[in-house]
Simulated scan of single mutants.
Amino acid sequence: MHRDQSSLKAPTASHEVVSPLFLDLDQMLDEFTPLPIRAEFHFDADMPAVITVEFLAERGPSLVWRIGRELLHRGLTAMSGCGDVRMWPALPRERPSSWLLLESQEVEALFEVPSAPLEQWLDATYRVSPAETEMDALNWDGFLRQLLDGPVAPTAD
């Protein structure tokens, strides 16, 4: 899920803020070559079902993906997702982790994500916006109207 879904925003019910999570990940260049990379996970209470992940490159532009919160949460313990975003737990080792696979026409990247800090952070997001209420206040009428009407062309003055 990496498209902007801003027309689905819900009004913020809670003023609690979940600080961004910075994690050091390993991007697997091949089976034996990890490349350390930093990622910033953002939670927006106006769009609680979506987590924005910014992969911070040392050189060049950052890469931003929007990933379903439930996909990330489930991926800590079982295979989760399909298509362009998938996540599953790694085999047991000294540092519990999960694999996050991102695919598009332009890029395919596999990341090893430390499980414990991501799980704690996701738990904090669920305390602000529980899973069963994250879709309650979304503006479905506005979203469907925009979808059916198509994009509005700018008017010339």
Rank of each mutant, 00 (worst) to 15 (best):
12 T>P: 08
12 T>V: 14
12 T>S: 14
13 A>F: 05
14 S>I: 04
14 S>W: 00
14 S>Q: 06
15 H>Q: 09
15 H>M: 05
15 H>P: 02
15 H>W: 01
16 E>N: 13
16 E>Q: 13
17 V>G: 05
20 P>G: 07
21 L>C: 02
21 L>Y: 00
21 L>T: 02
25 L>W: 03
26 D>T: 03
27 Q>P: 08
27 Q>V: 15
29 L>E: 10
29 L>S: 09
29 L>Q: 10
29 L>V: 12
30 D>M: 08
33 T>M: 08
35 L>F: 15
36 P>I: 02
38 R>G: 02
41 F>K: 01
44 D>L: 11
45 A>T: 05
45 A>S: 14
46 D>A: 15
47 M>N: 15
48 P>L: 11
48 P>N: 12
49 A>S: 15
49 A>W: 11
50 V>R: 14
51 I>K: 00
51 I>V: 07
52 T>L: 09
52 T>C: 07
52 T>F: 06
52 T>D: 12
52 T>S: 14
53 V>P: 00
53 V>L: 02
54 E>K: 06
55 F>P: 06
55 F>K: 03
56 L>P: 00
57 A>K: 02
59 R>K: 06
59 R>H: 05
61 P>W: 06
62 S>D: 12
63 L>K: 04
63 L>Y: 02
63 L>N: 05
65 W>A: 04
66 R>A: 12
66 R>V: 13
67 I>H: 03
67 I>W: 05
68 G>Y: 01
68 G>T: 01
68 G>C: 00
69 R>E: 02
69 R>V: 06
70 E>K: 02
70 E>H: 03
71 L>I: 05
71 L>C: 05
71 L>F: 00
72 L>A: 00
73 H>I: 03
73 H>S: 09
73 H>P: 01
74 R>A: 09
74 R>L: 11
75 G>Q: 06
76 L>E: 13
79 M>H: 15
79 M>N: 13
81 G>T: 11
81 G>Q: 11
81 G>L: 10
82 C>L: 15
82 C>R: 15
85 V>Y: 09
85 V>I: 14
87 M>K: 13
87 M>H: 10
88 W>N: 13
88 W>H: 13
89 P>T: 07
89 P>E: 02
89 P>S: 06
91 L>P: 09
92 P>V: 14
93 R>M: 11
95 R>Y: 08
97 S>G: 08
97 S>E: 07
98 S>Q: 04
99 W>R: 10
102 L>P: 12
103 E>K: 11
103 E>M: 09
104 S>Y: 07
105 Q>W: 10
106 E>S: 09
108 E>V: 08
110 L>A: 15
111 F>N: 07
112 E>R: 12
114 P>I: 08
115 S>T: 15
117 P>T: 07
117 P>Y: 05
118 L>S: 04
119 E>M: 12
120 Q>H: 08
120 Q>R: 10
121 W>Q: 03
121 W>M: 03
127 R>T: 10
128 V>K: 10
128 V>H: 09
129 S>I: 07
129 S>T: 13
129 S>V: 12
131 A>P: 02
131 A>Q: 10
131 A>E: 12
132 E>L: 00
134 E>R: 11
134 E>M: 15
134 E>N: 11
134 E>C: 15
136 D>P: 04
137 A>S: 06
